[in-house]
Design a protein around this nucleic acid. Sequence first.
DNA 1: CGACATATTTACATCGATGTAATCGGCGTG
DNA 2: CACGCCGATTACATCGATGTAAATATGTCG
Lengths: 337, 337
Amino acid sequence: MAPRPRIKDVAEYAGVSPKTVSNVINDYEHVSEKTRSAVREAIEALGYRVNIAGRQLRKGRTGMITLAVPELDVAYFAELAKHVMAAADRRGLTVLLHQTGGARERELAALHGFDAQFTDGTILSPLSLLPRDLATRDTRLPVVLLGERSQPGSADHVGIDNVAAAREATEHLLARGRRSIAVVGGALTGRQGTDRLRTRGYREALRAARVPFDADLVVPVDAFHWQDGARAVGAVLRRDARPDALLCLNDHLALGALRALHEAGLAAPRDLDVVGFDDIEAGRFSVPSLTTVAPDKTAIADSAVSLLLDRIERRGAEEATDHVVEHRLVVRESSGG
Amino acid sequence: MAPRPRIKDVAEYAGVSPKTVSNVINDYEHVSEKTRSAVREAIEALGYRVNIAGRQLRKGRTGMITLAVPELDVAYFAELAKHVMAAADRRGLTVLLHQTGGARERELAALHGFDAQFTDGTILSPLSLLPRDLATRDTRLPVVLLGERSQPGSADHVGIDNVAAAREATEHLLARGRRSIAVVGGALTGRQGTDRLRTRGYREALRAARVPFDADLVVPVDAFHWQDGARAVGAVLRRDARPDALLCLNDHLALGALRALHEAGLAAPRDLDVVGFDDIEAGRFSVPSLTTVAPDKTAIADSAVSLLLDRIERRGAEEATDHVVEHRLVVRESSGG
DNA sequence: CGACATATTTACATCGATGTAATCGGCGTG
DNA sequence: CACGCCGATTACATCGATGTAAATATGTCG
């Protein structure tokens, strides 16, 4: 099989120097129309295509960024990935998508490993990363974190105000007269993750409404999948007092909960209210449709890509910034909408 | 800011030649334990990481493959991507994920563009590609197609037997006494895509059961999303004769249809049956849960990666192969399961 | 028509890593 | 003790493209 032609082959075919071919490829202005078309023809005739490795080696940039998320089959991340790719595209960047499975080791690899050295920067949505992992990271590699609030100053960060979001969702339920609200996926201790921030917002809303907090209503889950939501409902229903609302910390949990409620002969919003987070498409079409906290995904993606590009271009070690993106509560059938 | 160290810097630090460092990095066997650890220390001390561009330039391979799918927020593709990444991982490959939006231009770019020349090969799930695009493609770039049956011989291909799958799904509905089965997303003319193959299987089942075919029951859709399924049901219900089953050509359509039926006061399987394709997770938790044709996604991903790797390694222009992967009908509530 | 400015093209070095082949050094053997 | 052998190490060229700076062509003006 014929090897792929190199710039030299094109040069010989067109009767010019390799550098002239390079100039044509890169739209250098001082190339006569005649040579330009001759080179173009040669490229066409030989089926030449730039070898990116050679180019990168010389130019020092790949024009690619890494997006590392826990799991693509979690709809929120798939939708987010779509937006990030679109945002990157607008800026002429290509996205290398990576799944970490939420494992610390793989998140570290996203920060330092193969991809990180290969692409110009990384957008990471961490689950298990520890503060010290960020503190000791190689700051020559530009990074933007999504979702959880990072240690201040360790890296740029983009996310919604999770405490406020959970507070608003809880207020909505309280306003509907709900008083016994379970937090599915909630956490009181452990890492300062999204779950803890949202649980805090929930408690703030309770306190403001003078509704006593009941730790039994915080229902932990293994993961944030449909099945975990279903399982959690099973656990909740076995208790003697049934809650009158479920604040599920993401839509998958909420949808799994809806399914389990249905199996138990209960329905939202008749018997209790259900609210989720993320506004994934499935929640718009579920029966009942799902009330949810909708983060502005477009804005998240846009900010993340901009911040990253800034880091890449001014390699300087500026202060890390913290970008807070809008969110809004979308009230649908599952809580009376 | 200090530039990233090169292999030369490590060599100087360790007091050996650059090539020796390279040998350590690549686990060359004839390196004394002493030098090996000295080099390792130097690498550690300087925070050295291999520059992939340099390596690829020299080795001619990136160890990366491209996976190009229409849209990540279509759950089937997200789930498939997850499996492909896992399969690639097992073989030491990294996946560059690309969204084409189903646009021909971007699918072509996946075959020939930036990624294609950059990675070692491409797995493409085409929607709009024309036969001639494949016929004229640069066969030096290894490609595996997913989903639709390609022109024989043009490229390796992996997929389920769509005709048989649709036939079985239809037989299932017929066996339940359904006689007026609408095909949501079906197509009688146009490209030889998945939709046409599945419609053909549907017709074969009807014919075998001596149920007359009614072209009005083939309901076209703009795209294969939730909303299109909902819209299609709206159109179907405006007719005078209501069908007694919906064969939806993917799960998103089916779930959108379930939602629209609910809004119309109808329910599956009481008033009519609903069946989908793809077995996405949402269908296991919907109300009612969704009967669907489940392709073996693990097998699809595995075959695709193997075939591609074969192509990459034996660059020869062997015959293109056609891999048919298992599928099975999963009967759930929406058709009486 | 010559001097000089401007436009076009080219030679050469270089990015970082690694394959090839040559060199070096230590050890066993006759 | 010289020789041969083999494992360890190194010098050098090379992968493909492009930046730099110099060379060459073209054109303008007095």
